[in-house]
């Protein structure tokens, strides 16, 4: 920055001498700087615009529906004017928690394997493989769940349909696995080597070192991984919509066909006129999702500010 300032000073003194190219270059230099700043500021503008427009559309719901009804009633019957979204909120929360319970440990163990156990050759295969997990479109995950997992669950547990939170959480668990894995690997690799060596030199086994030294040191990074995975799971739409059964009722078992905030938006948005109470209620559900994901970002900030790794 000082350099730029120095050059600007330079341009002042040089004004008498050379009127040509250098002046113009400095002018362009300043223009470029402002353009880059404008592009960067656009990101802030976009996120505020999203909060504003989705929030405004969603909050209009409250002119017809009380917040208490929306958040605490599970009665969703738009034709009868009942807009209780509790079933969807519960559906989102339960399937997210289950997905973390499935994908979290698997991802973390995978990360330990990749960071500390796998030989180089295997590591070179596993890194792109986890990237590929992320790259597979979510409709394809949903599709495979639909033709393989749902029939299998139906036959194995002799349930009427096989749709429900278990089906969607199993697939969600696989979808968030790469998120947990890749961020945890970075966190594990960032743990200073001397910590590990000191523990081993004191006679601890490799696994004791992992549990008592490396994992605690990598905790902030691992927490970040888990929260990001939760954000992905709660916002995931297509795969969940294809597997959860799309019935607005509270989750009572692993095989109750239910719905989540995201899946219900996809199912019903097409049938609702823009600006109706029903439509606005769906926007409000999107706004709830938006707030949850923003809170998660703040939570991650909190973890990373505290920790080292």
């Amino acid at each position: 920055m000082e350099q730029v300032a120095a050059m600007e000073n330079g341009s002042q003194t040089m004004q008498f001498g050379s009127p040509g190219g250098h002046e113009r270059r400095l002018f362009l230099d300043r223009c470029g700087r402002y353009l880059f700043l404008a592009a960067a500021s656009l990101m802030t503008l976009i996120i505020f615009a999203i909060i504003f427009f989705v929030g405004r559309q969603g909050l209009m719901t409250f002119s017809a529906v009380s917040p208490i009804e929306f958040f605490t009633s599970a009665q969703w019957d738009p034709a009868a004017g009942k807009f209780g979204a509790l079933a969807f909120i519960m559906g989102s929360v339960v399937s997210t928690v289950l997905a973390i319970a499935i994908g979290g440990p698997l991802g973390l163990l995978g990360a330990i394997f990749l960071a500390k156990v796998a030989p180089d050759q295997l590591r070179r295969i596993m890194r792109p493989a986890t990237d590929l997990y992320v790259a597979i479109p979510s409709v394809v995950y949903g599709y495979i769940g639909l033709i393989l997992l749902v029939p299998w669950l139906r036959d194995t547990f002799s349930t009427p349909t096989g749709f429900g939170v278990l089906a969607s959480s199993l697939v969600l668990g696989i979808m968030i696995l790469p998120t947990v894995l890749s961020i945890s690997v970075d966190a594990l690799n960032a743990v200073p080597r001397p910590l590990e060596e000191a523990s081993l030199a004191l006679g601890a086994t490799w696994w004791q070192t992992m549990i008592h030294v490396i994992l605690p040191a990598a905790r902030p990074g691992i927490m970040t991984a888990v929260v990001l995975a939760m954000a992905r799971a709660i916002g995931e739409t297509m795969a969940v919509q294809m597997l959860i059964g799309n019935t607005p009722q509270l989750v009572t078992s692993l095989f109750t066909p239910t719905a989540t905030l995201t899946s219900n938006i996809v199912v019903e948005m097409g049938n609702t006129p823009f600006g109706s109470v029903w439509g606005n209620a769906l926007f409000l559900m999107a706004f709830v999702l938006l707030i949850i994901s923003l809170l998660m970002i703040l939570a991650i900030r909190h973890f990373t500010a505290k920790g080292v790794a």
Partner: peptide, 18 residues
């Protein structure tokens, strides 16, 4: 960072409004 975590369905609805 926030933009990266906004669920895509929410981005879709924003696009629908705007």
């Amino acid at each position: 960072e926030s933009l990266a975590t906004v669920p895509s369905i929410v981005l879709g609805l924003f696009g629908m409004i705007v």
